[in-house]
């Protein structure tokens, strides 16, 4: 029974909605609720939170009955590597400049693929970066230093 629950698509979707809805209501309780006629800033989010919880409960119930499984793999490698390389891009843009940030992003995200080949990816990174510098920095005039502090 427990195993079935672990990859039950609808139960998880429902649980996600319930958590989101509850969070919304808790956070919105800090804002003035108002009345239906004079709505405060808390009115809309609280109502929506309630709706989400209702939807969530329904989905959990349906899920227990239907028991549909999540299909495919979770592609954990990509799920970790891609967001991480975006974060690195963000950090490097602020501290190291456009060129290093973009190189790291391209090489980093390429790592998410199981077919990663270093030489090929390095060539891609160099080519794309050169193209992006020409297009964005010189062409569109975006005000980013190519290398910060160098």
């Amino acid at each position: 029974m427990q195993l079935e629950f672990r990859d039950n698509k609808d139960v998880w979707a429902g649980a996600m909605l319930i958590v989101t809805g509850t969070t919304a209501i808790v956070v919105a309780s800090n804002y003035t609720f108002g009345t239906s006629l004079r709505m405060g800033p808390g009115y809309f989010p609280s109502v929506l939170g309630g709706l989400l919880i209702l939807f969530g409960l329904y989905l959990v119930a349906v899920g227990l009955k239907r028991n549909e499984k999540i299909e495919g793999s979770w592609s954990l490698r990509a799920l970790v590597v891609l967001p991480l390389s975006l974060v690195l891009f963000g950090l490097l843009m602020e501290h190291a400049g456009f060129v290093p940030a973009l190189m790291v992003l391209i090489v980093g995200s390429a790592l998410a693929s199981s077919e990663f080949k270093l030489v090929e990816v390095l060539a891609l990174a160099a080519g794309l970066t050169a193209f992006a510098v020409a297009l964005f920095i010189y062409g569109l005039g975006l005000p980013y230093p190519l290398f910060a502090g160098w």
């Binding site: 891609l82 390389s85 975006l86 974060v87 891009f89 963000g90 950090l91 843009m93 602020e94 973009l102 992003l105 391209i106 090489v107 995200s109 390429a110 998410a112 693929s113 077919e115 990663f116 080949k117 090929e120 990816v121 891609l124 990174a125 794309l128 992006a132 964005f136 975006l142 005000p143 980013y144």
Partner: peptide, 27 residues
Amino acid sequence: YRLLFPAIMAFSAIGIYSVNNSSFEIY
């Protein structure tokens, strides 16, 4: 695809960064 998707990531990231010139949107 192994070469295409890093390029998609690169153009997405630059574009989003340029909205407010800030990394916050990237995160």
